[in-house]
């Protein structure tokens, strides 16, 4: 399978999956949405395997840099957002003590846990990759 044909098939699958998802959401059938996404993923993987698409080193470098940039932007943003959402409810101000603002605290807590989860994943993956690439203890 040529790269051009693979790209064409990828577009067709994307359109097909998008149509099924929009129809499934309209009919409130979330199981069908999940099935459509999974089917799309399986077909993409099959065609990719058949087309023998290899990720070349420039693509990998771009992905690494994009991931690094995403982390550098997303982690502080969501961390600061969680603090900003948690401060009003813990400030003791009467205006924020109403039940209307309780969702802010919940949202702030969710953001805080997401931030901690992300930092933990980064630390663990850094540790393992450091060992894989020759870094010893305390280096």
């Amino acid at each position: 399978m040529k790269l051009k044909k693979y790209k064409q098939l990828r577009i067709i699958i994307t359109i097909f999956v998008s149509i099924i998802i929009s129809l499934a959401i309209n009919s409130h059938s979330y199981l069908l949405t999940l099935a459509a996404v999974l089917t799309g993923m399986v077909f993409m993987a099959l065609f990719r395997h058949k087309a023998k698409i290899k990720a070349d080193e420039r693509d990998i470098t771009i992905q690494e840099k994009a991931a690094k940039l995403t982390y550098a932007i997303f982690a502080p943003t969501i961390g600061i957002a969680s603090v900003l959402l948690l401060i009003p409810t813990h400030s003791g101000l009467a205006v924020f003590s109403k039940t209307d603002f309780t969702y802010l605290e919940s949202l702030g807590m969710i953001f805080a846990y997401i931030t901690l989860f992300m930092i933990s994943i980064f630390a663990i993956s850094y540790h393992f990759l450091n060992q894989k690439f020759g870094g010893g203890r305390g280096q």
Binding site: K54, D56, E57, R58, D59, T61
Partner: peptide, 22 residues
């Protein structure tokens, strides 16, 4: 050499430094 044409273009234009292997 097993890369995409874009990689060769980027190397020639000095926009991408290839790995030692490449």
């Amino acid at each position: 050499v097993g890369v995409t044409r874009q990689t060769i273009i980027a190397i020639e234009a000095n926009k991408y430094l290839p790995s030692l292997g490449l």
